[in-house]
Design a protein around this nucleic acid. Structure first.
Lengths: 191, 191, 191, 191
DNA sequence: TATGAATGAGTATTCATTCAT
DNA sequence: GATGAATGAATACTCATTCAT
């Protein structure tokens, strides 16, 4: 063995992300992470310098992934603001289905040294939404004086619907209600 | 049991609420709480059975307070849905100014034991909003098929604007944007 | 229990001193110290902030004791340099009998943060010897241009005779040989 | 086994000796040793079976060297006891200048396993001194009933003068004082 | 032979909880 | 009731050693 194994790194990261999403930071032990990833405890330290760093990497990786997914989706979506917002909300909910725990992680609140990194990753996701809103304003489809806040609202609504909505609600229903409020909330006057 | 001092209880609760809001659950030590409340560590156990229970009590108490505050405000507010929603959002933001930490405390991811109590307290606040929305529907002012979700959205938007909005944004601006999106989002068709 | 118990502190210190003398710093576990002192592991931290601090305190305490013992002995010893030197060597060897491990500790080499404190304690012992030598020079009994070095030699000879001398040699024999070399080595010319 | 490179072995040994002299046994990591010797961590195990063995080999090697150096010097030194003792002390101090860490390494308190080998190496050095003393006794130049102890004293004095003497004292001054005390201490009566 | 990734046993330290005073 | 000394379970992290390449 000469070189660090990127597959093993991803495995550890994925195991950690799942556990961190299921339980608060301090309740996740590195023993658990190591067991979940089927590696020795010491191996974690070959790839990550500390528990904090592992946590940060797990969340940042997830958010980065999310931003990439949204970008790809937007690339194949027509330049219509409501359509694009729908696409984003769909992606957010779809992401939460693929990574059931990561979305809860987005803000479960372990303030950390490298928090800047996380904030940046989060902002990168939010900025996708904000850009779509601003485009819509220019195109006359959106009437919103504060797209920066609205972008945060969109994320917050997705999160709230997942955390506090009825447990068994289909994502389609959640998406419909989020988009209903959001799109009517920022729609430009009909004429 | 006989002579338990309610003032001391409140003092402990207030100190705990502040600390729990500033740091994650596991980073708050009972030593800190005791010091902040100027009591001995053992005294905490005279009033609360465990750290978990103290945490739960602190958050539940805060949310209960909030629900009471909203109730009082609604009592003196006319039966007009948009006006009542505005009043609630104002109260939420005002409350967050008086108890700067409570909304941060609403983050998820903590002692799952007793979680029921917390969820209930949160639902009690949300239900105030939901009731106002349903009233509005009946009065023909609101068009919203899922007031339960919308109520959660309202809370989430307040929270997001506080946590992720510009640090120095005046509450009035935040309130305006929240209400703008929210009210237009659920407004009944003009005629 | 309101106040820290000085007897318990001494008990911990004594247990620690013995263990640290028997084994190198890193081979002594706090588990062992706690068990030896018949206290819980956490109790160690009530009295000492860290393992390093416990180590430093143990050695410093021992050296302090030694300096005190020497002072007392000198107080009842006539102002004759050879006699006083004999008394000191006797005390050093006697001390090593009472605290069989502490003497080895005097220099088993764990360079530590509070090392200054230890060096100071060591110097305090050495200075007793140096003072006696200087007095002897003034009285014309001693001829020694470097009492500072000779004081260190005296300590070193005691230590070497204990560590590297025949295991079963009686202290009296060791004392005799140390004093023989030392006293002749610094004696003023006969006339 | 076939191609073991003696130069690499020496390099490892030298790096280890330096590190062990600078820090206590447990604070030296094999990672450090490997880095210092510019070899892989695994390579250390090609040449030495364990950390303990590496330590033992490093010290023993050093002491062996020292014994050899003394032997060579004595071979060219006249058969006069004081002269030969002077030569030995000079060699000891000179050796400590070339291998500044070796004498610090002579501190006690390390892997008791293999301790026999180290004690033997130390005794081999001491025996050189002892032999010179016994020769002197036979020649009527030395009066010393315990040359075994005195030999240990000589080593101890060198060590103490290096470790606890003034930091900037020239070796010549240290040698002078050591010899002064030592030679007068064991000198036969003038006539 | 040389390497360094992988491993897991070992340990200092923290902290919720208990209980004697 | 109030206190804080006492406790030991729990956990992040280190590092000597192994072994596949």
């Amino acid at each position: 063995m000469q070189t660090q194994d990127p597959a093993k790194r991803r495995l550890i990261l994925a195991s950690a992300a799942r556990l961190f999403a299921e339980q608060p930071f301090h309740d996740v032990t590195l023993e658990q992470v190591a067991t979940a990833a089927r590696v020795g405890k010491g191996t974690l330290y070959v790839y990550f310098a500390s528990k904090d760093q592992l946590y940060t990497a797990a969340v940042a990786e997830g958010l980065s992934d999310l931003a990439g997914t949204i970008d790809e989706r937007l690339r194949v979506t027509p330049a219509d603001a409501p359509v694009r917002l729908s696409a984003i909300v769909e992606e957010l909910l779809g992401f939460s289905r693929r990574y059931p725990h990561l979305f809860a992680l987005m803000r479960s609140g372990h303030p950390i040294a490298g928090s800047g990194e996380l904030d940046a990753a989060r902002r990168r996701v939010a900025s996708r939404i904000e850009v779509v809103l601003r485009d819509g304003v220019e195109r006359g489809q959106i009437d919103d004086p504060r797209p920066d806040l609205t972008a945060q609202f969109a994320l917050a609504m997705v999160r709230a619907s997942l955390l506090y909505g009825p447990v068994d609600a289909p994502h389609a229903d959640l998406a419909a209600q989020i988009l209903r409020v959001l799109l009517r909330g920022v729609a430009a006057a009909p004429n």
